[in-house]
Design a protein around this nucleic acid. Sequence first.
RNA 1: AAAGCAGACCGCCUUAUCGCUGGUCAGUUGUGACUGGAGGAAAGUCCGAACACCAUAGUGCAGCAUAGUGGCUAACGGCCACCGAUCGUGAGGUCAGGAAAAGUGCAACAGAAAGUAUGUACAGGUUAUGCUGUAGUGAAACCAGGUAAACUCUAUGCGGUGCAAUGCCAUGUAAACCGGUGUUUGAGUGCGGCACGCACAAAUCGGAGGGUAGGCAGCUAAAGGGGCAUGGUAACAUGACUCUCAGAUAAAUGAUAAGGGUUUCAAGCAAUUGAAAUACAGAAUUCGGCUUAUAGGUCUGCUUUUUUA
RNA 2: UGGCCUAUGGUGUAACUGGCAACACGUCUGAUUUUGGUUCAGAAGAGUCUAGGUUCGAGCCCUAGUAGGCCAA
Length: 118
Amino acid sequence: MRQKLGRLKSEKRINALFNKGVVLKQFPLLLFYNHSAEWESGVSVSKRLFKRAVDRNRIKRLLREAVRKQWQGLSGDGGMPCAFMLLFVGRSMPSSEEITKASNHLFSKLMINSKKNV
RNA sequence: AAAGCAGACCGCCUUAUCGCUGGUCAGUUGUGACUGGAGGAAAGUCCGAACACCAUAGUGCAGCAUAGUGGCUAACGGCCACCGAUCGUGAGGUCAGGAAAAGUGCAACAGAAAGUAUGUACAGGUUAUGCUGUAGUGAAACCAGGUAAACUCUAUGCGGUGCAAUGCCAUGUAAACCGGUGUUUGAGUGCGGCACGCACAAAUCGGAGGGUAGGCAGCUAAAGGGGCAUGGUAACAUGACUCUCAGAUAAAUGAUAAGGGUUUCAAGCAAUUGAAAUACAGAAUUCGGCUUAUAGGUCUGCUUUUUUA
RNA sequence: UGGCCUAUGGUGUAACUGGCAACACGUCUGAUUUUGGUUCAGAAGAGUCUAGGUUCGAGCCCUAGUAGGCCAA
């Protein structure tokens, strides 16, 4: 069963996520998450680290691609649903392999955590 | 052939698999099918407009902008043509290019003297002085001087605020608290310089605090694109024909794989092989310009020099 | 989206109306001290964010850009 990619949009809930959410780290990525009714995701890149819009857009696309690949595994796993935000904190342009590696690591962690809390 | 000048244009392509997003259709409300989906600068926000609201935007002052002449344009600080100045052998480039006889100011050092001036030396001239010429300083030295990207004057133009405008729907709280002003003797508002005027006007301004921060319209068919014809030196205008070409909102336009272009370097007589590179950069109300960034490449017209015929 | 401001030695600031870019701290050298600090003496270190223009002459005036910061909703 395939599920559509849930997007995290509300400003209020994003702020709550950054204030109270749990942080997972795996260079060059950060992942904030907390529990919610549905699986939701968002991505972000700081304007400080990457000046040009082209670079930021590309990184965000790579991150979104990584989320997409793991989406089925996450949502179909039976764990408690989470809203999470993926942040890129590296300073240089990443390759797609780096992103996939790091994100896979993070998502496996997230899955373990979400199951614990069931 | 080399070097150069001006203008116009392109700015990676193809296939497969997996996605994102707008629209249409179907639908068993899981989704499926078809079909659109970044740029010449989308950028900087430097000008000009459209559109919206406030008097269908009024008067004066202040302030700001522009500055040869004529034209183009919805408009412009843009573009075109011509004149002038200046740089270049030349094709061509550059120019805030109005007024110093309205007034005020400024000019370090040097120099006798820098604007209420008239010094020294030599020569000319004269009875003599005044006078005329030359010299030296300096960016500028007597002429009703220079300087207006100094104030200023003249001419022309400019109301303000912006799509987070504006209208509607939904959700929600506090019509409470403190202080000021005021009700035909007019507070305050009409957004942001001041005064007047006009309109509305019984409540309103400030403080601290509480609440919401979702959706729809605006929102993509337009001063629109394309080649053709006619007029005009040109910018541009007119005509018929033809095409429909992004609309997101924590913000779509992507990822992976394979193959092929193009350029550079290396090896090689050559076919070819290997390696590297493949720019600047990402729509956010919409147009017209300007400015800045840009690997590499194409085309057109012209200039100079050398050689050959 | 719209608007505003700033840029000067390594650091923080000056330079009035255009006329030799100044000061403090820091750095370096020497003296004093057993040594270090303090103190004293001396020296180096910039051409004013970048590119044009106006002017005899530009940190200052004008134009365009770059970088950083701030404000409104």
